[in-house]
């Protein structure tokens, strides 16, 4: 055993031994070990958030969010089980029915993490009724469009603006079922200092925050998830190189 390995913790995911640095989350350690734990609100480079719960795993038998739970020596993690898959699917289904997600004409289709997650989890039809909420489109910014119909409240834009762009363009407003992403200008995103080159403009996993006038430029067949399911790059062992 090398000195480096000696400094690492050891735990198991679905019976497979995984080495990890102290302070890493289960999600991070799993990705580096080539194990995909489905997730939506977690994004590499952003602080852990833990809101969507799609990454729920069983840690020593108890449900925990893999994106916020630090690794510990000897912990037993269950990830790829039928029960967890069903739980994750139920969360994704709730996200689908809670917004207005019309994949058939959404420009994010094929590159959308929510859609790809639905496919990965084998979701066929939501077990809940669609809510068809009334949501707004904010087209006031010259280069970026916000379509709140498609927002899943993952807060990636909020964190990216604050942590990566050094701005504070996005923030949650309202509560409960009325919660949504707000911007720090009364007249919409057009009044903020959001730039199309900001990381916040790229962080959205769905089609809520999109760059204007470039939709559908990538042909079907060449989009991110057209040929391989979401998580494939992690399972192919590429997470360590990113």
């Amino acid at each position: 055993m090398s000195a480096q390995d000696a400094a690492k913790l050891s735990f198991t995911i679905d019976g497979k031994e995984v080495k990890a640095e102290p302070g890493q989350t289960i999600l991070q350690a799993a990705a580096l070990a080539g194990i995909y734990i489905p997730h939506l609100c977690a994004m590499k480079g952003l602080s852990p958030w833990g809101s969507c719960r799609v990454c729920t795993v069983l840690v020593n038998g108890k449900p925990q969010a893999a994106c916020t739970m630090p690794v510990a020596e000897g912990m037993i993690v269950e990830n790829d089980t039928a029960e967890l898959k069903d739980l994750r699917s139920s969360i994704v289904e709730m996200l689908f029915v809670e917004g207005n997600h019309f994949c058939m004409f959404c420009e994010k289709s094929g590159n959308c993490e929510l859609q790809a997650m639905g496919y990965r989890l084998g979701m066929l039809q939501p077990r809940h009724d669609y809510m068809f909420p009334t949501r707004q489109v904010d087209a006031s910014h010259p280069d970026v469009m916000l379509d709140h119909n498609r927002c899943i409240l993952c807060a990636r834009c909020i964190r990216a603006s604050k942590e990566l762009d050094g701005k504070n363009v996005f923030q949650f407003i309202h509560r409960g079922a009325h919660k949504r992403i707000g911007v720090d200008a009364a007249g919409g995103a057009g009044g903020t200092n959001l730039a199309v080159t900001d990381k916040a403009a790229e962080a959205c996993p769905v089609g809520c925050i999109v760059k204007k006038r470039v939709g559908f430029a990538v042909p079907i067949g060449q989009r991110l998830y057209d040929t391989k399911p979401i998580g494939s790059h992690i399972e192919a062992g590429r997470a360590a190189k990113e």
Binding site: M104, F105, E107, V137, A139, M145, K212, R213, V214, G215, F216
Partner: peptide, 14 residues
């Protein structure tokens, strides 16, 4: 109405 113009060719074909 209220949808972006670049979406329309994909939307209306439905």
């Amino acid at each position: 109405q209220g949808r972006p113009f670049w979406e329309v060719p994909v939307l209306v074909q439905r």
